[in-house]
Amino acid sequence: MAKHIVKRILITIPVLLGIVLLIFFMLNVVPGDPVTVMMKEHLKEDVVENLRKSMHLDDPFFLRYLRYVLDMLRGDLGMSWKLNRPVTKVIAQAFPYTCRLAVAAALFSWIMGIPVGVLSAVKKNSLIDHLSMGVSLFGVSMPVFWVALILQNTFKNVLPVSGVSGWRSYILPTVVLGWSSAGRIARLTRSNLLEVLRNDYIRTARSKGLPPFTVITRHALKNALIPVITVMAIQISSLLSGAVITESVFAIPGVGSLAVSAINNRDMPLLQGTVIFTAVLIIAGNLVADVLYSIIDPRIRVE
């Protein structure tokens, strides 16, 4: 088990280096010179030239990549050009907002999604089933920004709709962000549970005289949730890396908003930092999913 986990962690190292290379390369080929953006084209040529030199913008690509990776390994993601502060500090400041929102949205989606999925599967083809699957489908298919605007407009007199001022500010973003996840989890739970309920071992469990509730929770749900948990682990890591649209619409100063402003300002170090931060979280999420998977499913554990 421990060996398995260590192996999975070691595999992430080349993946991470590859991701950094890719990001670095892409941000180098996009048009728009940061210096001109920063200086609004008013500056004299020699000043621009000096600035470029001090920012190492004219060094060869691989030299800059190498320098960046070495700095990264020391926990230094460079300075934000726009804010003139270390990128790690900027992200660390934004992360708590994103984290609160992500955890709330994830909990919302699990607490809503799993019971609704179970109920739909157990009461298959009933009114409850059709209703909850309709609401789930709506949540999955409606664009986030649209749902956000509708909710803002509906609840503008009851709840804060912009910025962060106390926990109530998180209610609407949580619903917006959690709804689509909840819908996805509900539908996945339902279809997996229906699949599992057809298995021979469910019939065996019933033949032992176990009550239906025990059959569902002990025998069916544990099997049905294996794929759902994978989705949940990946979902929370992507939520943690910042919900770009939701954070922007509700003006929450999280990692998502940070990425948007970095793009607008051609703030390369900050943008690289947020993207790498996202990548690390996604990799970690996959790792956690993998480990959880092997804890729940004994068949994977032995191999």
Partner: peptide, 14 residues
């Protein structure tokens, strides 16, 4: 009752 398929009649995760 005992069933035909011993491979699938027991719950794999218990």
């Amino acid at each position: 009752m005992i069933f035909q398929e011993p491979m699938t009649s027991l719950n794999p995760v218990l």
